[in-house]
Amino acid sequence: MPNKPELLNIPADVPRMGNTVSQWIGRKVLQMMGWSFEGEYPQHKKFVAAVAPHTSNWDFVVGMAAVFALRLKWSFLGKHSIFVWPFGGLLKKLGGIPIERSRSHGLVAQLGDRFAQSEYMALAMAPEGTRSKVDYWKSGFLQIANRADVPLLLIYFDFSRKVIGFGPCMAVSDDLDAEMQKVRNFYAKIPGKYPDNS
């Protein structure tokens, strides 16, 4: 049986969710799958977290286990079609924000406003936007961080080492093309579950 994953040091003022039972479940899932953490949790109260590479459904399993294990109260975006009974209410309670891609106009402004109105908010997003292979990453996560004037945290799932890494936290300038290149360079050598989909 793998060792228990060491938990990150979370600042005392970070809002938490769950309890010791859900934390135990998260840690147990990571332990059975052989995953661990590395890096440092950011000191910022508001940020967008890019989570990559996103190449399989297992990313969601590992990600939710990490959220449970660390008792993080984060938000994430999801297709509105998954927010249905019997899991819709649970997903919202876990921080899910349903979006309808065909009506996504104005989403950046809406999320920017939500950041402005919140004392603490961490929004996790997958730059690829899908687990399938794409030629270009969507810039929505950069646009939101820039609009809300919050830093971007780079989180990675390294399937070769089974490590959930908390990488650098960077400011996002108005030059989104340059910022995207920085992000792509950071993730270039980190293998996902299915590297061919990266």
Rank of each mutant, 00 (worst) to 15 (best):
G165K: 13
G140V: 03
I190M: 14
A126E: 08
S132D: 11
P42Q: 07
D196S: 12
T130W: 08
P2C: 05
R27H: 06
A126S: 14
S160T: 15
Q23H: 01
R16F: 09
S132W: 07
I164C: 02
S160Y: 06
S139H: 00
R114G: 02
K138H: 13
F68N: 10
V48Q: 04
G34Q: 03
A49M: 14
R114S: 06
R71D: 14
L8A: 02
H80F: 09
V48W: 03
Q110T: 09
S173L: 09
A126C: 13
G96F: 12
V163N: 03
V163R: 09
K92F: 05
R147W: 06
G112Q: 00
K138L: 12
G192F: 11
F68T: 07
E119F: 02
W24K: 00
D177I: 05
Y41A: 03
R16E: 11
A65S: 11
D196W: 08
W24E: 00
G39Y: 00
I155V: 10
W85T: 07
I97N: 10
N197L: 15
G34W: 03
L7H: 00
E100N: 14
I10W: 01
M17T: 07
V67L: 09
A12V: 14
M32N: 07
L111T: 01
M125H: 01
Y187C: 04
A145G: 06
I99F: 08
P5G: 08
P86G: 08
P5Q: 12
L94S: 11
Y187P: 00
G63Y: 13
F141W: 08
W58F: 04
K189R: 12
G167M: 15
L152G: 00
A65T: 04
Y194R: 09
